[in-house]
C-alpha cells in the first residue's frame, strides 16, 4: 500500500509539473492523438482497398491499435522513467535514487512522465469505445488487459535500457528496440510465422503486449490467460534481474545537481 501511495504521489506531482505548462501539455497530447489517428487512417485506406487480409479486417486492427496505444500511453505516462533509463545510467545520475529508502527501480521509473503518453491512452480508449462497439464486459477486459500490456512495456523498457550498464551508451539501441516492439505489436499476428513468431513471444514480446490481449478480447480462453500471466511475471523478472545485475556495474558521474 505504501508503494501504491508513493507511486500515486509521484504521478500526481509529475502531472502537476506537466500542467504548469498547459499549452505544451495539451499540444503534446493532441499531437499524439493525431499521430495515432494517422495510423488508423492508413489501415482504413488499406482495408478500403483490400477488405480482408488472411481473415484480418479493419475492426481487428482497430482493437490492436486501441490496446497498444492505451498500454504504451499508460506505460510512458505513469512510468516514463523506464524509457529514459539508458541516458541516466550513461550520465551516472542514479546516485540520488540509490541513497533513498524506496525501491530504486520503482523510484526511477515513476520519477519521469512523458506527457504525450496521455494522448496515446486517450486515443486508445476513444477508438476502442467508438469503433470496436464494446459490451460492458469487453470494457472491463480492455482496462485489465491494457494494464497488463503496459506492465510488459515498462518491463521491456527497463531491460533494454539497462543494457547501458554494459555498453555505456544505449539510448539509440534501446529506442530502436522499443520502436521495434511497437512496430511488430501493431501489425496482424498472422503475418508472422516460424522463427519470427518465436522471437515475438520471447526477445521482442509483441505477442504478450498485443496478440494475446487482442485474442482474449475476441474470445476469453483460460489457457491463453494463463500464458499471458506467466509472460507478464517473466517480463517483470527479466527486467528486475537485468537492472539489479547491471546496477553492480554502475559508476557515479559525481554529478552535483539541485532537485527542487
Amino acid at each position: 500500500m505504501n508503494v501504491v501511495r508513493f507511486t500515486g504521489a509521484y504521478v500526481w506531482a509529475n502531472l502537476r509539473i506537466a500542467l504548469a505548462y498547459r499549452a505544451a501539455f495539451f499540444s503534446a497530447v493532441l499531437g499524439m492523438v493525431i499521430n495515432d489517428a494517422i495510423w488508423v487512417v492508413f489501415w482504413w485506406l488499406f482495408f478500403t482497398r483490400f477488405p480482408s487480409v488472411d481473415g484480418y479486417g479493419f475492426r481487428d486492427i482497430v482493437i490492436v491499435w486501441s490496446i497498444c496505444a492505451t498500454a504504451f500511453g499508460l506505460a510512458v505516462g505513469l512510468a516514463g522513467g523506464a524509457f529514459t533509463l539508458a541516458s541516466r545510467i550513461a550520465r551516472g545520475e542514479l546516485d540520488f535514487y540509490l541513497v533513498l529508502p524506496k525501491p530504486v527501480i520503482l523510484h526511477l521509473v515513476v520519477s519521469r512522465m512523458d506527457t504525450s503518453g496521455w494522448g496515446d491512452a486517450l486515443f486508445g480508449v476513444a477508438v476502442f469505445a467508438f469503433l470496436a462497439s464494446p459490451t460492458p464486459m469487453d470494457a472491463v477486459a480492455f482496462v485489465g488487459l491494457s494494464l497488463i500490456a503496459a506492465t510488459i512495456f515498462v518491463s521491456y523498457a527497463i531491460a533494454v535500457n539497462s543494457l547501458a550498464f554494459w555498453t555505456g551508451r544505449a539510448e539509440t539501441l534501446s529506442d530502436q528496440l522499443i520502436f521495434g516492439l511497437i512496430t511488430f505489436a501493431t501489425y496482424p499476428e498472422k503475418l508472422f510465422t516460424g522463427a519470427v513468431k518465436v522471437v515475438l513471444y520471447t526477445v521482442v514480446p509483441a505477442g504478450f503486449v498485443a496478440y494475446i490481449p487482442v485474442s482474449l478480447l475476441h474470445e476469453w480462453d483460460r489457457g491463453w490467460a494463463l500464458v499471458l500471466l506467466v509472460g507478464t511475471i517473466g517480463s517483470i523478472s527479466v527486467a528486475v534481474t537485468t537492472f539489479t545485475v547491471g546496477l553492480r556495474r554502475y559508476q557515479s558521474g559525481n554529478l552535483t545537481a539541485m532537485r527542487a
Binding site: A23, S27, A28, I34, I38, L45, R49
Partner: peptide, 27 residues
C-alpha cells in the same frame, strides 16, 4: 507558440499518409 514539436509530428505523419509512404497512391 511555445513548442513546435507537435506541429512537426503532425507534418511528418500527414505527409507519410498523403505522400503514399505505405500504400502507393494508385491504390
Amino acid at each position: 507558440i511555445e513548442d513546435t514539436s507537435s506541429i512537426y509530428l503532425i507534418y511528418t505523419r500527414v505527409s507519410m499518409i498523403l505522400g503514399g509512404l505505405l500504400i502507393p497512391i494508385d491504390l
